[in-house]
Simulated assay, not measured.
Amino acid sequence: MRGPPKAPAQEADNLRTGNEAPTFLGTQKRLPEFNLVDRVVLVSGGARGLGLAQSEALLEAGAKVYALDRLEKPSPEFYNVQAKAQKELGTSLHYHQIDVRDEAGLNKTIEKIGKENGRLDGLIAAAGIQQETTAFDYNAADFNRMLEVNVTGVFLTAQAAAKQMVKFGNGGSIVMIASMSGTIANKGLACPAYNTSKSAVLQLARNLAAEWGTHGIRVNTISPGYILTAMVEDLFVKFPERRAEWSTQNMLGRLSQPKEYRGAAVFLLSDASTFMTGADLIMDGGHHSW
């Protein structure tokens, strides 16, 4: 079992001298179960968007984060977060280019990360693709590609991470990014392959949670609603009417921002959720609760 999380050196000094900021969380005095100091976490799809937003939150909680993505270079925002991690947070953000369908490459990369750190504590599997095509027009190649990335890729990443967690014997927490689209059909959208893939992620997580629980590995999912990412903004250029339509389809009357999923990432990867596994955290503004 893990011992209590440690506070960074400066925070420890503040604790001793009584100069700790009154609003600081995750130290020995304030909600220590959220403290991720000394934890090593992987984030697939971490080069931009939701994955990067959650990576930043993990860094702020003290974790050392490794982003995995297929992009040759991460987004410009990535480098800002990387600099913040080193200069302000006393931790680090690293990048590895990898396609989640590359089984051998994934295992080699994740094994190397584990060996370098002597541990692996968490994974957020956020890598995924989307394609809007009607069921009549979808071809087998495109449908299979969707499943390969969104389901097989998620499984292979989780498998490689879990092997390292078992190797080091500290257990761990795996979070898979599913979607509200895994439980509902999106009104006005033709996404049969994407929605199928996200439903599969929900079931995959339940089965891995059942199988790996004896190793101290928890597996949960997050099901976001519509997120206002750069990709969605580009979609609104083509379909401007969707901005208003999507906003009226949930109980809050707006779209979500990537930053609104930061807390969920820290919660599920920290000791704040040690008795939670095989569960789905739905964060869709009440979209499918009408």
Rank of each mutant, 00 (worst) to 15 (best):
V65K: 07
R70W: 14
E211Q: 12
V65Y: 01
M180L: 09
S223R: 09
N14W: 05
G253T: 10
D69I: 00
T221D: 11
L204T: 03
D38H: 11
R262T: 04
E116L: 12
L71G: 04
A83C: 11
W246R: 15
T17R: 05
N35V: 03
E245I: 04
N19G: 02
S75H: 02
E77D: 10
G213A: 06
I129D: 00
M165L: 08
R48Y: 08
V65I: 06
R30F: 02
A21R: 08
V201Q: 09
K187D: 07
P8I: 01
Y95P: 13
D271C: 00
K64E: 14
D99T: 13
G216T: 03
T214H: 12
D271K: 00
N186W: 07
N14H: 07
S181Q: 11
K238H: 02
L208R: 00
R145H: 08
N150G: 15
Q82W: 03
L58M: 15
R70A: 14
L58E: 08
H94D: 10
G171V: 01
L71H: 07
A200I: 11
N220E: 07
G216Y: 01
M276W: 08
N170P: 13
K29T: 00
V149W: 13
T133S: 11
A244T: 04
T274L: 01
F143A: 14
V219R: 04
A141N: 06
R218D: 01
T152M: 15
L252N: 14
A264Y: 05
A178T: 13
L15T: 02
R48P: 08
A104R: 11
E233L: 00
S173R: 04
G114I: 04
T134H: 10
V232A: 08
I177E: 06
A178Y: 09
R243F: 06
S75P: 03
P8Y: 02
S179L: 04
A104H: 09
M251E: 14
L59M: 13
N150Q: 15
F236V: 07
G285R: 10
S75F: 05
E245L: 05
L202E: 10
I98V: 06
N150Y: 15
T23I: 12
Q159S: 00
A230H: 09
T221W: 13
D137M: 12
R262E: 02
Q82V: 00
P192W: 03
D284F: 07
V237P: 10
K73M: 07
R262D: 00
S289F: 12
A67D: 01
G171M: 03
F239N: 15
A53T: 14
S181Y: 06
A85Y: 01
N14A: 05
Q86V: 14
G90T: 07
V175K: 10
L42G: 01
S273M: 05
R119Q: 08
A85D: 01
G263K: 14
G105M: 12
D99C: 13
Q97L: 10
S256L: 04
G188C: 12
L93D: 04
A7S: 14
R206Q: 04
A161N: 00
R145C: 07
R30C: 00
S44N: 06
G49R: 08
G62R: 12
M251L: 15
D280E: 09
I174M: 02
E72S: 06
I227V: 14
